[in-house]
Amino acid sequence: MLSVTIDDATIPILGLGTAPMTGRKCRVAVKQALELGYRHVDTAQMYGNEDAVGAGIAAAAVDRADVFVTTKLNRSNLASEKALSSVEASLDRLNMAYIDLLLIHAPSNRTPIAETIEAMNDLQERSLVHHIGVSNFSVKQTKAAIEASATPLVTNQVKYNPYNRQDELLEFCIDRDVSLTAYTPLAKGRVANDETLVAIGERYGKTGAQVALRWLLQQSNVIAIPKASSAEHLQENLDVFDFELTDEEMDAVFAVEGGLVDRFRGLFRG
């Protein structure tokens, strides 16, 4: 699995998103994903599935050390003491000694970013959390989080797909050496029937969804975490490393819905 390296964090560029799966469905999907080759699993306190994610990882024939696990602080747990206690509860539910990446799930008007970041840094000092980041943050908010932290922020997780562009944020992340993790990368299935994506996919024997994922993964600093529950879709999402879009095809996807493309020349992965 290819990865993005931010500071000393090595993050697989394709992961499994688990919202809104819970219970047995989530546990089985996580186990299947790992056995197919995934090494990055994303969950959150808000999803109510950390226990199922942990059980799925434990059931797979893969060492815990080889799996990059992300979870997120619920907005109600951003105050210092709640952040600390809620992560300990997350670790209990996951049945793990540490979390690879802890994110602020979304900014709050009630709790200053600096207060939450300080608590996350404390969790890092205690080795309960290895890396930290944010989710659903604007450029301004991401900058504030970076400036508040004693350690590097390694990602900002946001909705990103051909219909939900993140131009300014992605440029900022590249400039500040932060990854951008794309959730809902398949636009809830919408990309599968997009005429442009389908036409490109036909040249490679790939689906429109696979083209959308490949488009994301060829962009510098971008990680994608599509949700899938069936073995078929898990494998389909994984089968995006045996072809490469040309610059012209990348531009064509950028231009879906009338997007601009010129500013992204040179920002594609090699």
Rank of each mutant, 00 (worst) to 15 (best):
P112N: 09
A79S: 15
M21Q: 12
A187C: 11
V53Q: 05
V28Y: 12
G266D: 08
F254L: 06
V178S: 07
R110Y: 14
L169H: 11
A44C: 04
D100Q: 05
I146P: 09
C173G: 03
T151I: 12
A150V: 11
A19V: 02
V139E: 06
R27W: 12
P226N: 08
L234W: 04
A59M: 10
N237W: 04
T18K: 01
A199Q: 15
T181C: 01
N121Y: 10
L16N: 02
N136D: 11
F172M: 03
T116A: 02
G17F: 07
R93H: 09
K72R: 06
T207A: 13
S76M: 00
L103G: 03
D92W: 07
A9F: 14
T207S: 15
I11P: 00
E35G: 00
A59K: 09
T111K: 05
A187M: 05
L213Q: 01
A255L: 09
V154S: 00
E257C: 06
N221A: 06
G15D: 05
F68S: 05
A33Y: 02
S108R: 03
I146G: 08
L14H: 11
V191Q: 02
P112W: 01
L153K: 01
F172W: 14
A55S: 06
E115Q: 04
D122Q: 15
A224P: 12
T18D: 02
T10N: 08
A145N: 13
R24K: 15
Q235T: 09
T142E: 05
L123R: 06
L260G: 07
S76K: 07
V67S: 04
R93Y: 08
R27H: 12
C26E: 04
P107G: 08
K206W: 10
N95Y: 00
L101T: 02
E118V: 12
A29W: 10
E88Y: 11
A192V: 14
D100C: 07
S229Y: 14
V62A: 12
Q210G: 07
A145D: 00
G205Q: 00
T5C: 01
A60W: 01
K31A: 10
R93E: 05
M46I: 00
L234F: 03
T142H: 10
P12M: 03
A19G: 09
R176I: 11
E125R: 15
N74M: 13
D92F: 10
S108I: 03
L128W: 12
F243V: 06
V134W: 00
D177R: 03
V198S: 13
L16I: 02
R24S: 15
N74H: 15
E232D: 13
E115D: 09
S138A: 04
A59W: 14
E88R: 15
A9E: 08
I146M: 09
N164C: 14
A224S: 14
T246P: 13
D251Y: 08
Y163E: 12
T18F: 02
V139Q: 01
N74T: 04
G133D: 00
Q157T: 14
E168W: 09
S85Y: 06
A33H: 05
S85N: 14
I146C: 07
L180I: 11
A106V: 02
R126I: 03
S3V: 00
T196P: 09
